[in-house]
């Protein structure tokens, strides 16, 4: 971590809070409650300090700074998850760039433009049913698809970042499409009618009425699907992703590992500390990443529902 990156992280960390505090300040609300998470964190920190001062033995954490900044090693004390963390997030980002625009575009087309009558309507219905089915296809099957088509036929390389990203992108697309469709469908038809009656075109109605109202729902669905993708292992095994890499990927064609792959590798290690301490630390890191993304999604949804009523 260079100083510049620390700066970027702190800025990102405090940015949403700053926007929130500013909005509340503008509307004249009390900002006292914003201190709540800091009170809890501060209380915990004081507790740790006091506990250390008592002289009783403290814990020996496996999940520490060393763990998230170093690669796998033969010695459990020196092993870490760094390349896998970078790999996982790299895959997520590439996947998001490709899968989310396609999914949201498909959802918009299916909900707003696709014909619902005649033989064309039946084709659309068939597509709908197929999307619902695809959402239930086991992930290992997507892995096979990724291996055969993306890795081999398109020659993107086995175990490369792009291959992993496209494979996982295909996996989450049906779920993202369905959740985005539901968000768009939840926009009352009366609002569309009102917009059309004002002489608005399809595009205006979509951009100024439908999408703004559906956005929180779409966002929730996409974040939840990110949470699903970050934990997927089977498709990565199928496309030949490495269980352990010693340096993080820096380009799209680099060989990549992901957090669940590395965890899977540790579970089969001979030294017991790998199977208990290091493994737990890896699982906790993965769970923290996934649960915080889900928490953000749920909180966005709750906020949205409050505004709706």
């Amino acid at each position: 971590m260079t100083p510049g990156l620390v700066l970027v992280f702190v800025l990102c960390l405090l940015f949403p809070l700053g926007v929130l505090a500013w909005r509340r300040f503008q509307s004249g609300e009390s900002n006292l409650g914003l201190a709540a998470p800091f009170l809890i964190i501060g209380g915990t920190a004081i507790g740790v300090l006091v506990a250390n001062a008592t002289g009783f033995a403290g814990p020996e954490p496996w999940l520490d700074w060393q763990f998230v900044t170093s690669a796998h090693s033969r010695h459990p004390e020196e092993a870490g998850l760094y390349p896998a963390i970078i790999g996982s997030f790299f895959i997520m980002m590439v996947m998001a760039v490709f899968a989310f625009p396609v999914s949201i575009g498909a959802a918009i087309y299916l909900e707003e433009y696709a014909p619902s009558t005649g033989w064309r309507g039946r084709v659309v219905q068939l597509i709908q049913v197929n999307i619902a089915n695809l959402a239930g296809v086991p992930s290992v099957v997507y892995g096979l698809l990724g291996l055969a088509i993306i890795a081999r036929a398109l020659r993107l390389g086995t175990g490369a970042v792009t291959t992993a990203a496209f494979t996982l992108g295909l996996l989450i697309m049906p779920i993202t499409i369905i959740s985005a469709q539901e968000a768009i469908r939840a926009v009352p038809d009366e609002h569309r009618q009102a917009s059309y009656a004002m002489g608005a075109s399809d595009w205006h109605t979509l951009r100024r009425v439908v999408l703004p109202e559906a956005l929180p729902g779409i966002l929730t669905g996409t974040i939840l699907s990110l949470g699903r993708a970050i934990g997927e292992t089977a498709p990565l095994i199928m496309i030949g992703a490495a269980t352990t890499v010693y340096s993080p990927p820096t380009t799209l064609n680099d060989s990549v590992s992901a957090m669940p792959m590395q965890i899977f590798a540790w579970a089969g290690e001979f030294i017991a500390d790998f199977r208990t301490g290091v493994l737990s630390a890896g699982v906790l890191t993965l769970l923290l990443a996934m649960l915080s993304m889900n928490a953000v999604a749920i909180l966005i949804r709750n906020r949205y529902e409050q505004e709706q009523t």
Partner: peptide
């Protein structure tokens, strides 16, 4: 009021952390 602010600020901190991890790894 405190309760609502506490919930939103917790959400903002978690969201900021997720955003921060993504940004740092991207950079």
């Amino acid at each position: 009021t405190f309760k609502l602010a506490a919930i939103s600020s917790t959400a903002a901190i978690i969201g900021g952390a997720v955003l921060g991890v993504f940004a740092v790894i991207f950079l």
